[in-house]
């Protein structure tokens, strides 16, 4: 059973720029993933406005009945979120690692246009390695 169901990366205006599925049942089509990504973007913004204390940076963890959603927002407004099994640990570390990979392999790629869908072989490769490593580490615990 997979610990991680899927990974989304959305740009600062709410467009989906990267989506990868790691074995969730009932795969969604491209339109659905785009819709979910922009919906998440707006809910993230609303949650900031609702905060009873100033200085809120949006939803970090959403606990649903059948999954957990961990979200990390970079300083430039790009949001990374993973959907995983309820109670999966160390997802914050994984998200930071994915952000590192994104800065290394996507942002430093001279052919990559900002805010556009990510198509980088090296990013795909190192991402799958990172997730694999994470899974191995989870199994080892």
């Amino acid at each position: 059973m997979a610990a991680i169901y899927s990974l989304f990366i959305i740009n600062k205006s709410g467009g989906l720029i990267f989506y990868k599925d790691y074995g969730s049942t009932g795969r969604m089509d491209t339109n659905d993933t785009l819709r979910l990504a922009s919906l998440w973007h707006s809910m993230h913004a609303i949650s900031q406005q609702l905060s009873p204390i100033a200085g809120c940076s949006g939803i970090e963890l959403l606990e649903a009945d059948t999954f957990d959603l961990h979200c990390f927002q970079s300083l430039t407004g790009t949001k990374f979120f993973v959907v995983c099994e309820p109670g999966t640990l160390y997802m914050d570390g994984l998200l930071k690692m994915i952000y590192e990979l994104y800065t290394d392999y996507v942002l430093k790629n001279p052919f990559y246009e900002m805010e556009m869908p990510i198509r980088c072989e090296l990013f795909d490769l190192s991402l799958s390695q990172a997730i694999q490593k994470d899974r191995v580490a989870l199994l080892g615990r």
């Binding site: 949650s47 900031q48 905060s51 009873p52 204390i53 100033a54 200085g55 809120c56 940076s57 949006g58 939803i59 970090e60 963890l61 959403l62 606990e63 649903a64 009945d65 059948t66 999954f67």
Partner: peptide, 12 residues
């Protein structure tokens, strides 16, 4: 359908 029971931000 699948619902949720909580969400968490850095302030609440």
């Amino acid at each position: 359908g699948c619902s949720f029971h909580s969400f968490q931000t850095n302030t609440y």
